[in-house]
Design a protein around this nucleic acid. Structure first.
Length: 206
DNA sequence: GGATCGATCGGCT
DNA sequence: GCCGATCGATCCG
């Protein structure tokens, strides 16, 4: 047996083809998967429980709505790469790029249920309640040590220190959707039900 | 070069 | 619930 390869499917990494599909399909399908960060050989991970989709230049809530710029270039790149940006000068937000290269779309990771590396997260999230450790896009990045320098990084590269595993998918009857949080302005942008989360999960933000 | 704004968070009321 | 923080990207002149 090859010990370098995880035994169970749950711990295998999602392939690039997973992310190359229509964004809404990927967003819904990411629920229940495991986001893993490797830091000095330690696994820090959580189940994905809340996401938001941002799709194409026509989506006025998307950073790509202004066309391609230096900031949002990663959204136009290959699927399976990440788009990390800074918000309000203090928080980083993690997005996973979807769809074939050239079409700007990504999924914002809004909340995780902590699974592994709890003591490591606890050190960095001092004074914060456990249920808030990875709830909210800024906290996901703070908790997993994801920073702006990782913008454009490939989750599917063999030597990546950040990736997504199959985990345990969520049945349809436990998936809920809603408009995206804090999106204002344009009617379509603020009403499209492009936020997906695990129904009745106690750790979902808001 | 300067002004404005933001896919938020944490502390305080 | 409300408010201030804090800084890069973008837009305007």
């Amino acid at each position: 047996m090859d010990l370098r390869r995880p035994v169970s499917k749950s711990m295998r990494r999602l392939p690039r083809s997973f992310f190359e599909r229509p964004t809404l399909e990927v967003a819904r399908d990411l629920l229940g998967r495991r986001l893993v960060r490797l830091i000095r050989g330690h696994r820090i991970s959580g189940r994905i429980i809340e996401v938001e989709a941002y799709i194409g230049e026509d989506d006025l809530a998307s950073h790509a709505s202004v066309g391609r710029t230096a900031r949002n270039a990663a959204m136009y790149g290959p699927p399976g790469h990440i788009y990390v940006y800074m918000l309000y000068g203090r928080h980083c937000c993690l997005n996973i790029v979807t769809e074939p290269e050239g079409f700007p779309a990504a999924i914002l990771i809004r909340a995780l249920e902590p699974e592994e590396g709890l003591s490591w997260i606890a050190r960095r999230r001092r004074g914060i309640r456990i249920q808030d450790w990875l709830r909210g896009p800024g906290r996901v990045c703070a908790g997993l040590g994801i920073h702006r320098a990782l913008n454009g990084h490939d989750l599917c590269a063999p030597d990546s220190q950040l990736w997504v595993e199959w985990g345990k998918p969520i049945p349809n009857d436990q998936v809920a959707s809603s408009p995206r949080i804090r999106v204002r302005g344009d009617l379509l942008a603020r009403t499209r039900p492009w936020r997906f989360y695990i129904r009745d999960h106690p750790l979902v933000s808001r």
